[in-house]
Simulated assay, not measured.
Amino acid sequence: MTTHTTGTRHDWLAARIDLLEAEKELTRRSDEVARQRQELPWVRVDKDYRFDTDAGSRSLADLFKGRSQLLVYHFMFGPDYTAGCPSCSSIADGFNGVTVHLENHDVAFSAVSRAPLAKLQAFKQRMGWTFDWASSFGSDFNADFNVWFTEQQQRDGGIEYNYRREPPMPEAMLTRAQPAGHEGPEGLLAGMTGTDVATYTRDRPGVSGFVLEEGVIYHTYSSFARGVDSIWGVYQWLDRAPKGRNENGIWWRHHDSYGRG
Rank of each mutant, 00 (worst) to 15 (best):
E214N: 11
F224T: 05
I231Y: 08
F224Y: 15
D256M: 03
Y200D: 04
R245Y: 11
D229A: 12
E214Y: 04
E247I: 09
W251S: 05
K243I: 09
G227S: 14
W252V: 05
H255P: 00
V216I: 10
S208N: 09
W252A: 02
T201A: 03
G215F: 01
G227A: 10
G206R: 00
H254G: 02
P205F: 07
G227C: 12
Y200W: 01
E213L: 11
G209W: 15
T201P: 00
G227W: 12
T220H: 09
I250H: 01
R226W: 09
R240S: 04
T201I: 07
A225G: 10
W232V: 10
H219F: 15
G215Q: 02
E247N: 10
E214R: 12
P242L: 08
W252P: 01
G206A: 03
F224N: 07
T199M: 04
E213R: 11
Y235L: 05
E247W: 11
R245V: 09
G215Y: 00
W237N: 15
E213C: 14
T220L: 10
W251H: 07
R253F: 00
I217D: 01
S223R: 14
K243Y: 05
A225C: 15
R226E: 14
L212H: 10
R202E: 05
G244D: 06
Q236M: 15
R226P: 11
H255W: 07
G209F: 15
V228E: 06
V234Y: 12
T199W: 02
T220Y: 08
W252L: 09
A225W: 14
A225D: 14
L212C: 06
W251V: 02
R204H: 05
S230F: 13
R253E: 02
S223H: 10
Y218E: 06
D239Q: 13
P205V: 12
E247G: 10
V207C: 12
A198S: 05
V207Y: 07
V211L: 08
F224R: 04
V216W: 02
R202Y: 07
S230P: 11
H254P: 00
N246F: 04
D239N: 14
A198T: 00
P205N: 06
Q236V: 15
N246W: 03
N248R: 09
R202C: 08
Y235M: 03
Q236P: 14
G206E: 01
L238E: 08
V228I: 11
I250C: 03
R253A: 00
W237D: 15
N248G: 12
Y200S: 03
T199L: 01
Y200F: 04
W252C: 04
L212T: 09
I250S: 01
H219P: 06
D256T: 01
R202I: 13
V234N: 08
Q236K: 15
D256F: 04
Q236L: 15
